[in-house]
Write a protein that binds this DNA or RNA. Structure first.
Length: 834
DNA sequence: TTTGGCGGCGCG
DNA sequence: AAAGCGCGCCGCCAAA
């Protein structure tokens, strides 16, 4: 056991220090050692190292990096306090080095963190912390990582990020058991049978896999897999693929088959695995299921960051930039093999690291394991199946739209024969310069806006032709022409990105299935092939239900538990308050009573007679009959509900009345006065009095913590909310803190249901072909439509996975089904009676 | 010739 | 003073 020497006289510091030879603290034998500069005033007084402000910062930062201070031996390069807070001199460092060597000999650390220039000089004999920091150095079998001293961070808070990054690097080194970038790859090109057999034997435990391909779209003409790779903790195996002459097609197929068997017992790791799984499915017809996707793991750990493999490897593992040019990646070469080996190597290493990070947050980990990873497989299948397109109908739609476009164009050329009507700039010049129409709005970039909202307000014959042109042009270019390049055997294969949004919703591209117009002419092009039926099931009013659940809003909860449509409730309450539409309310209510052959009973159990109907009762009856009944009696009510829906979402998520004014004008051509608009907002919160407190709770939480969580535990990090000043960014973050848990959980419910339904039916009966935020699209075999529809609605109103997440909802969840071509499907009742 | 920002607009 | 949230795609246009 090492003994300190309070009578040490190796340098002059003993004469001024209160505590002479203040040695370190921590386990006398451990892997990790931290070396600081010298005791400060507080340490000197206390006789204990690293207990001041800088010590606390060190402890916190170590913890954030995943290192427990208790597991480290912490000491200083110089063990007596230099007077006047000066740094130790070189001579003092040299003199005290003996003590440092004793301590190292005792502790026998594998990894040493050097805090600042003084320990850098003491341990490695070099100076220049700015250059040396962040770069690990190996000496006498010990890995040293220099970084700044925490005291420097206290003085220069701007350097905190770098300090944290270095500590993260340090953690990685500990975790990895060495300096990542210095550890050599050991890759083997599988170019003969012996190597293939050796590879199979090596495929056990955690195995990373990755493909190199000729492109991004596996259905494209000439798409091929260039190489198939596997990474183990021992080797990286690269199999020359379809574009090489190393193996015949038959040999490759046999190899893939044997690998498939072997992978059964492995823990398969991929980065954006859906991509690779899809390629293997398309090119070889095999289904390789991964247990860990490093891209999705990082997405859950930081949704605000990028998730590319190279970026992450460099950020977390200190990897070099191993990227090569595009043409190297697309063709087989030794250079490409090495590149491929890097992908495999770092995918496996990232898995080690992210698995530990996920383990620190069990809630997020559960989302990863129970939702994200199962969804990788679900969407691989959805994308592989694709959506079926009614191509003859598509041709008809195209002809119709081309005709529309031409008609509009003929009208437009009367006003500007030489104008490119797709150019906002040229249109603005025509309208506001040549035709001298008054400028109505400016764009964000300072141009004169020619948006739909502006054109609608222009009283000139050119305006209506413009709107017609735009509508036809948009549909034609985005949904007819835009789809053609992706059409393969009458199917589109959109790509769903599980990491596509900060809230956890999916995004979709190539093409985007989630932005298909509701216009039947386009939407109904998506259908099912003969023998199958398209089924769409959506969670009704799901965001409002979740908002009601989270806020505990009494009126919303009442409405949902009593089967009242909340958008309708808002609409009716607004009418009752404003006192408008008296005539319409009375006649609709009367008609309803007559329809019901006399008296009706409404929720308050009062009996109402048509002849003695008063306005208050009429309002109650309107509420009870709901929007569909009302609309069947008077068309106008449909619009009204739509308007209320926008009001609900707008005000719910923090919209201000000024925006409501704009909304009312653009969507309903209603010019609302400032007073009316402000009043409508007030009324909304009077109708739903518990919402403000929920808004406040969310704001307070996000300001204090810098994040919010969904019911499932998924995190939305909003560091901007922690700003001390009430900046625009902070307010934005606060609104996101309100919206995010709602939007996020709505999506998760949808995914939970999709996962369960998929599990319950085999693929010869049902395919999920896509999701649209709160809806699932299926293809169902004709003879199963009724059974499946009933079951899907059941599952969506309470997926089993909620139990795994210990979520109990007091607000009921309901789902609706539409059977038939998308956008023109019928509900089950109508479908059965056809 | 390619890239990125912008305006505009489709969806939940 | 200013205040819904979340996306992708099209074409234009200027810069590289």
């Amino acid at each position: 056991m090492l003994r300190r020497d309070p009578k040490c006289t190796l340098c002059k510091l003993h004469s001024t220090a209160k505590t002479v030879c203040l040695l370190g603290t921590g386990p006398s034998r451990c892997d990790v050692m931290v070396i600081g500069e010298a005791p400060g005033r507080y340490e000197d007084e206390k006789g204990q190292a690293f207990v001041g402000q800088a010590g606390r910062l060190l402890t916190d930062s170590l913890e954030r990096a995943g290192i427990n201070r208790e597991d480290c031996y912490i000491t200083n390069a110089v063990n007596c306090r230099p007077p006047d807070n000066r740094t130790p001199t070189k001579a003092e460092i040299r003199a005290c080095k003996k003590w440092l060597e004793y301590q190292i000999a005792m502790v026998k650390p594998k990894y040493v963190l050097l805090l600042g220039n003084v320990p850098l000089l003491a341990a490695l004999g070099t100076t220049g912390i700015r250059k040396a920091r962040g770069k690990p150095v190996e000496k006498d079998g010990i890995i040293y990582l220099p970084t700044y001293h925490p005291a420097y961070i206290l003085r220069e808070p701007g350097q905190a990020a770098i300090f944290e990054l270095d500590l993260a690097t340090f953690h990685k080194i500990i975790d990895f058991g060495g300096i990542p970038e210095e550890r050599e790859l050991d890759y083997i090109i599988v170019d003969n049978d012996q190597r293939f057999e050796a590879m199979l034997k090596d495929l056990r435990g955690a195995v990373s896999s990755d493909l190199e391909t000729t492109g991004l779209y596996p259905w494209a003409e000439g798409s091929r897999i260039v190489s198939i790779g596997f990474g183990t903790p021992r080797h990286q195996w690269i199999i020359p693929g379809e574009t090489t002459s190393q193996w015949t097609r038959k040999q490759l197929e046999e190899m893939v088959e044997r690998i498939t068997e072997r992978l059964d017992g492995c823990y398969l790791v991929g980065h954006n695995w859906k991509f690779d799984a899809l390629w293997m499915r398309v090119r070889f017809g095999v289904e390789w299921v991964a247990q860990f996707d490093t891209m999705l793991a990082h997405f859950l750990l930081d949704e605000n960051d990028q998730h590319g493999l190279k970026y992450l490897a460099q950020k977390f593992l200190g990897a070099p930039d191993w990227d090569v040019s595009k043409d190297v990646k697309m063709g087989w070469s030794p250079k490409m093999a090495k590149y491929h080996a890097h992908d495999l190597f770092y995918t496996l290493r990232l898995k080690q690291y992210f698995a530990k990070r996920l383990a620190l947050d069990p809630e997020v980990k559960r989302v990863f394991e129970k939702i994200m990873m199962p969804c990788v497989e679900l969407f691989t299948n959805a994308e592989f199946r694709g959506v079926y397109i009614d191509t003859p109908k598509m041709d008809e739609a195209e002809a119709y739209l081309r005709n529309e476009l031409e008609t509009a164009r003929k009208e437009l050329v009367k006003w500007g024969p030489d104008i490119n009507w797709r150019s906002a700039k040229q249109v603005a010049e025509l309208l506001f310069d040549r035709l001298e129409i008054e400028v109505i709005e400016m764009t964000k970039g300072g141009g004169r806006s020619v948006s739909e909202s502006v054109i609608k307000r222009i009283d000139h014959p050119v305006a209506s032709a413009m709107l017609k042109y735009r509508a036809a042009d948009k549909q034609l270019s985005s949904f007819i022409e835009g789809w053609k390049p992706f059409l393969v055997n009458s199917r589109l294969h959109p790509s769903f990105k599980l990491h596509g949004t900060v809230t956890g919703r999916l995004s979709c591209e190539h093409p985007n299935l989630q932005q298909v117009p509701r216009d039947k002419r386009i939407r109904s092009l998506i259908t099912a092939p003969p023998g199958w039926t398209l089924l769409e099931c959506d969670l009704s009013q799901i965001e409002l239900r979740i908002a009601a659940e989270l806020s505990g809003e009494r009126n919303m909860i009442y409405a949902f538990t009593h089967g009242i449509d909340v958008h309708w409730l808002t609409a009716i309450r607004e009418i009752a308050r404003g006192g408008g539409l008296v005539h319409e309310v009375m006649t609709t209510a009367k008609k309803y009573i007559e329809l019901k052959q006399g008296a009706v009973t409404y929720i308050t159990k009062n009996k109402v007679d048509a002849s003695k109907l008063n306005y208050g009762d009429a309002i109650q009856i309107m509420l009870e009959m709901g929007p569909d009944n009302a609309a069947s009696l008077l068309e106008d009510w449909k619009e009204l509900r739509k308007k209320a829906k926008a009001v609900n979402f707008g005000y719910l998520y923090g919209m201000w009345w000024k925006k409501f004014k704009i909304y009312a004008r653009d969507n309903y051509g209603v010019n609302v006065s400032d007073e009316q608009a402000a009043d409508s907002r007030k009324a909304f919160f009077e109708n739903y009095p518990d919402l403000p407190a929920w808004h406040d709770r969310q704001r307070k939480f996000v300001r204090a913590e810098g994040y919010v969580r969904t019911l499932s535990g998924r995190k939305r990090r909003l560091p901007q909310a922690m700003s001390r000043d009430n900046t625009l960014e902070r307010q934005e973050a606060e609104r996101q803190a309100i919206n995010s848990p709602v939007q996020s959980f709505a999506n998760e419910l949808n995914l939970m249901a999709a996962l369960q339904v998929r599990e319950e039916y085999p693929r010869n009966v049902l395919h999920i072909v896509g999701t649209v935020h709160d809806a699932i699209l299926f293809e169902v075999r004709d003879d199963y439509v009724e059974r499946v529809t009933r079951r899907v609605l059941e599952v969506m109103s309470g997926p089993r996975l909620l139990k795994d997440f210990e979520i109990e909802m007091s607000v009921p969840i309901e789902a609706e089904a539409k059977i038939g071509p998308w956008g023109s499907g019928k509900d089950l009742h109508k479908w059965l009676s056809q």
